[in-house]
Design a protein around this nucleic acid. Structure first.
Lengths: 342, 342
DNA sequence: TCATGTTAAGGAAACGTTTCCACAAAAAGC
DNA sequence: GCTTTTTGTGGAAACGTTTCCTTAACATGA
């Protein structure tokens, strides 16, 4: 059994409130008393009980990150950075993972009431039609990598990229190289307001702008994983529609797609060009290295945390920050139908 | 402000303890009263405050996972499965990430006192010479993927593979193919009691058994990431020691190594054989697919959680479970110096 | 009828904090 | 030398639960 504040007070021969004042650096305490208390704290290894603290405190200091899709390497890096940033500010931080299929914002509401949070960051998931739920949350909340478009923007913050614009950029790049049979792969491309859908809309917009007819047969719905990208690409190739380029809405998908292409005996980029999305390390170290739309993961993480703290301390009102992603060319895309000359 | 148990009691016209009995399903409550309380709970969306609960409760129900190295994809999958398993049992679950460089068990001690945990799972990190700290933890604790060898085994549990044995297996496989200049890459191979060290010892054992002299120049210390594996392999190749096979103590490293080999214009496996460790998805979808020692991640996760619950409920004493890993051959290893005939 | 047991429900203490309030002693202002 | 302020400290209420203890009503068995 560990010591509590009462024990410390008794041992140090002071009142409970004095101990509290010392460990919280509040109020006035004489140097002598402070030193006495601190030495007892040190000696008996006293750590304040957070449950009691949070229970009493009007406002807690607990910050949570709610993530859906923890297996996506793009997310793990952001998680790490967010953790670091929150830690730097000395706030208790915990990560919660919600399973695919469960509603993340319902889970968050429960969490806020249970754990007395003072701020929450969301990563992954979908949040439209959640206006009432956001209001119920009633604490500062920042959405990263996704936004809720049909929700009153003054009740939440977001730090994102413009998925539609960036997907448009990727597709436009393929078109500029001369491709017209461009496949698209994402999770739930037809489900309104998902990330996959926004990227799909960017893809469509680029096609339309260049008067390339949209062929639904070239769009595959798949999970954000290599295995899923692999099977989606096999299905696609089997359709025999003469695809010359693949735009995968995630690097994990792109890697599975590349494997399917290479396994089929085709060459990248001579037979098929591939571009991914996110900018994970593996896309760079794949062979061939894969072109991608690289998100500024670190900036997003940094900005999310600093925005959240500004909201918590009342130094800012809700806002929506949009970062630019960068098209990184590594050679997995080229003109169609022209074998590379060595 | 959300409703509390007192509000519910008042609105339902019953006592506080009755509400508590209803929501916890303890003691005797008449059907009529129960229904009345539940309808109020439903209507006012009452969620018990966990801080108060934990504060009062002799034994909490909080379970934490402490992970070091969240960016390793091998870990993310295990995290997901552990989360699922704990959730299934209805216990609150939180994930904590400790940064490289911080002591995970010190962080855990603080956490246990702060959050009133009833059980903890460790993933990654090192735990030797922590006997006193384990005792201080004083709650059931399960180490996954790593064990503390110099600590009294009765004060903690572990669910692991035998790193030395499996690394021996990998090295032996390369030797059996005819390789003698076998490089080894891991994180901290010379730092006692790390995972990297155990795998290094397995590598050494296999070499010794086959009377292959150990060449320290063939061992590279690197992080568990593709970029780190890439630069380590460049260093290695630049030494010009005629390496024909590479054993990377992690698939992430193996992928970086493969890229370095391919970038140097060499072929896998014709010029250099590569075998990794862990069994992550990316190793399979790399091109060429990489051989690996595949850990039974799911079984480890399942077994860790079920063991932890047995410990919490007193149905078991501390034990140490060792799973077997599997050598998966995908073609990235072959005899040295014999170009493949097509 | 009376003792006993069972079912149902409420009151109140306790968990470990923070914080408001009270109070004493010392310092300061006149 | 008196009031007023400042400094330093302790007591106790409150946070929202759980749980032990008590009480009350009612049924049971002799």
């Amino acid at each position: 059994m560990s010591v509590n504040i009462k024990d410390v007070a008794r041992i140090a021969g002071v009142g409970i409130s004095t101990v509290s004042r010392v460990i919280n650096n509040t109020g006035i305490v004489s140097k002598a008393t402070r030193d006495k208390v601190l030495s007892v704290v040190e000696q008996y290894n006293y750590v304040p009980n957070n449950n009691a603290r949070n229970l009493k405190a009007t406002q807690s200091r607990n910050i949570a990150l709610m993530v859906k899709g923890i297996t996506n390497p793009f997310f793990s890096n952001m998680i790490k950075e967010i953790e670091r940033q929150v830690d730097l500010r000395g706030y208790p931080f915990m990560i919660y993972h919600v399973e695919d299929g469960t509603n993340e914002i319902n889970a968050a509401i429960q969490l806020v009431q249970e754990k007395n949070l003072c701020g929450i960051i969301f990563m992954g998931g979908t949040y439209d039609h959640s206006e009432e739920k956001f209001r119920r949350l009633n604490i500062p909340c920042v959405l990263t990598t996704i936004t809720a478009q049909e929700v009153d923007p003054s009740i939440f913050s977001s730090v994102i990229i413009d998925d539609l614009k960036e997907a448009y950029k990727a597709t436009k790049y393929l078109i500029s190289l001369g491709h017209t049979a461009i496949a698209f792969m994402a999770k739930s491309p037809f489900l309104n307001e998902t990330t996959g859908n926004r990227r799909f809309l960017g893809y469509i917009k680029a096609l339309e702008e260049s008067s390339i007819p949209y062929d639904p047969q070239l769009v595959e719905d798949c999970e954000y994983s290599a295995s899923s990208g692999f099977s989606a690409t096999r299905r696609l190739l089997n359709k025999g529609r003469g695809v010359t380029a693949l735009f995968a809405a995630a690097d994990t998908i792109a890697i599975g797609a590349a494997k399917a292409v290479l396994t089929a005996g085709l060459s990248i980029p001579d037979d098929i060009s591939i571009i991914g999305f996110d900018g994970i390390e593996m896309a760079e170290y794949y062979h061939p290295s894969l072109d991608t739309i690289s998100q500024p993961a670190n900036e997003i993480a940094l900005s999310s945390v600093s925005l959240l703290f500004d909201l918590i301390t009342g130094q800012s009102v809700n806002q929506h920050i949009v970062f630019d992603a960068v098209l990184i060319k590594r050679g997995s895309c080229k003109n169609p139908g022209m074998k590379r000359v060595f």
